[in-house]
Nucleic acid binder design. Sequence first.
RNA 1: GGCGAGUUGGCGGAGUGGUUACGCAGCGGAUUGCAAAUCCGUGCACAUGAGUUCGAUUCUCAUACUCGCCUCCA
Length: 498
Amino acid sequence: MAEIRLYNTATRTQEALTPLQPGNVRMYVCGPTVYDRAHLGNARPVVVFDVLFRLLRQAYGADHVTYVRNFTDVDDKINAAALARKEAGVPAPLTDLIRERSDETIGWYHADMDALGALRPTKAPRATDYIAQMIALIDDLITRGHAYVAEGHVLFSVESDSAYGSLSGRSVDDMIAGARVEVAPYKRNPMDFVLWKPSSDDLPGWDSPWGRGRPGWHIECSAMARDLLGESFDIHGGGIDLTFPHHENEIAQSRCAHPDGEYAKIWMHNEMLQVEGKKMSKSLGNFFTVRDLLDQNIPGEVIRFVLLSTHYRKPMDWTEKKVADAVRTLDRWSEVFAACPDLLDEAPVALSGDAEVVTALSSDLNTAGALAALHGMIKRIDQIAVDDAGRTAELRVFLASVSLLGIDLASYAKRFLAGERFLSAEARLDDTEDWVRIKLRTLLEARAEARAAKDYARADFLRDAIISAGIVVKDTADGFDFELTDQYDPAKLEALTP
RNA sequence: GGCGAGUUGGCGGAGUGGUUACGCAGCGGAUUGCAAAUCCGUGCACAUGAGUUCGAUUCUCAUACUCGCCUCCA
């Protein structure tokens, strides 16, 4: 087994993973705030850390990896969504609507991430189930002099933590100088952040020593990680935008409350996702959800493939070309199994996967390198005779290697071999009007007749005409097929005469 | 203003102190009535300047440009 090396944001270097408890790895990843469908950006960390989860399970054993990913179900946006429903006339108490909204969103989230082939984490706690632990943690921080009560709020005192700012590499003074937040007058230091805040009567709230209220954003992760993983654990992950303030504040809370623990040892952050070269952001409104893509008939395996084709620490640009390339690659990989479809129905074998693939993944999750290694494998396999037993053995290793990336090639290939095509000509034609299909069919059949009569001049003339409308004509063993290209233009097709 | 990341061939995208990434596109060949698809083979690169070194795309510094975070955000 190759040594697993991971880039640690906290030290800004790559480090070998050595579990604090030998043979038992503990990982916490910040999960979604469940107010709406997961957008594509939400999917990136899920897929990235799922690959890590799979790698760790293989290296240490499935029962020796604990992966916790939370659901944040205390949030203004959830409240707003519930409030909007109430105002729309839904006759139910607001708290019920809030709970309903969270439940519904969590269900969506699981379904969408399942479609991307992500394994469920070992534990998926909800913040609202850990209010008591949060209150205890806050109480502890007050006792230890790291937090104070002011006007119904409990605030963390950043000046009480000499290490504050170490993860994100900034000093408290720098932060104050560049702060663009309005500073509440009751804060002792402008950077002090909320641990607990009062709740109005019409919003969710819990009784606490400081009155009815609700927790601040950061405390939930500290409380759940403490409860489920302990004071020290191995890996903490999330999007790079969480580095500050979320993770910085988590560290501060946890280390100050548990001075003997070091909280997370390795901090991993995935870079952001862009769409066609532009930042994907809610405020710009150019984002789309995972469900949108699935509904466009883009298979989950394809989405996952694209997400893994760029290293997790680099910004990734989501483009239609990448989707098309991924479809193409998965189609090719599927075709290799045409001669041995039974392999696809075999139960997953306990193979460790190709050494090159494992080495790439072990080197700070080099998923792009792993995909390159898979390309090499398939090339080698292609050169082995179809009836050679060695080919079957190699294909099993190939499948095991692909599944280490969480790409369910067996499922994809079975659908492909059964004739399913994604982004196919037929699928695209389905969106067009009847006359297009009739016209195209007329032209294609006219050409087939010309070919049958060996009137190649006419056949080629017709094919050139169809090509000029952006449609590629293919002759197959049992007839013909066609494919729409980027130049496909219905207007040109309409102008053609047989 | 503060913090951080990046700049690789036509495009996407890894990696390395001296040697092939890989994929797509291109080109040549096999195949085909001719094509398409497929298979085989193949050319093309490391932002700029300086330094360290026997040798740098790879290390150091500077410059330019791009991007992200500092505010809910993965």
